[in-house]
Write a protein that binds this DNA or RNA. Structure first.
Lengths: 151, 151
DNA sequence: CTCCATGCAAATGATTTGCATAGCG
DNA sequence: CGCTATGCAAATCATTTGCATGGAG
């Protein structure tokens, strides 16, 4: 994790930004909760535990910055808040989500499922694909089991 | 278009809702601008031309209602506003978007590109897919041409 | 009459911004 | 010093809600 932050520090520097304690605390939270999809508010509360003086605006500014640098992805599952998701290192952009309509859980799929599809879009629509968002809405494994038991 | 509205009227009635003049005006706007992805505000302004007394809250309520009835899809391209998109009749849910990062234009793909992918998700993750959202971000045909010329 | 629906204004909630201050190089 | 970054409070923007009124069956 240390090294990961070191690398991000270099990325920041190369663009003239600094890795301030607040930014580092925010990154640490994001790393610790890599599996989650935290909202700005949630990040703020977690960062506050490490650095109580931090302001919500700073968290927003930091997340915005990280988003520009493509270190995090800003995603939106339609619940009124933006969520932030650390990109896997070395993985260009493929990164999909399974959102459960029952329990709200979000599972990630790192695997690239869209290679073929992307090719079709590029060829047939002459659209030069830079990135994509794919989200499935449905019922997760656990909730399927619950439904069966409930019968 | 008349018939389309008639059918929606029946759908509304079957759930105990009415097709009020405001709702009809809203639907008319959505039908006239079927290709676009209007925000609530934009719909409101267009409806106001036909029915000046309408209130923004009513537009929101109508869009919400139509969304519940699966007559429109509420989508979010990450620009801070929800957009509303009429579902094609008879088409279950497959409906993807190509968002141009240059000019902001949005193109629709009706074709089902995800049959295979969906199967993989169902089998490999045991996730029961109900619906999905797929958006590609990139450069549209027109903007690619402009870029070439600019050289 | 009984509801559903509406318009308006006020409330809410997320996100952004202005500004004075603090701190690194 | 010169800039970037920060905290705080105020501002903004989209969306929602309360409430009294209006209208269809």
């Amino acid at each position: 994790m240390k090294q990961r932050i070191e690398r991000i520090k270099k990325q920041l520097h190369s663009k003239g930004y600094k890795l301030t304690p607040q930014r580092e605390a925010t990154l640490t939270v994001l790393l610790e909760r890599e599996e989650d999809h935290l909202s700005a508010e949630e990040v703020f509360l977690l960062v506050k535990e490490k650095a109580p003086e931090i302001g919500l605006a700073t968290v927003y500014r930091t997340l915005e910055l990280l988003s520009e640098l493509k270190i995090v992805d800003k995603i939106n599952f339609g619940d009124g808040v933006s969520r932030y998701d650390l990109r896997k290192e070395g993985v260009e952009h493929f990164h999909h989500h399974l959102v459960c309509m029952e329990c709200g859980s979000v599972e990630e799929i790192i695997e690239d499922l869209l290679g073929e599809v992307e090719k079709i879009v590029e060829d047939e629509w002459e659209f030069q694909v830079k990135d994509h968002r794919l989200t499935f809405h449905g019922i997760c494994k656990q909730c399927q089991k619950v439904a069966v038991k409930a019968k």
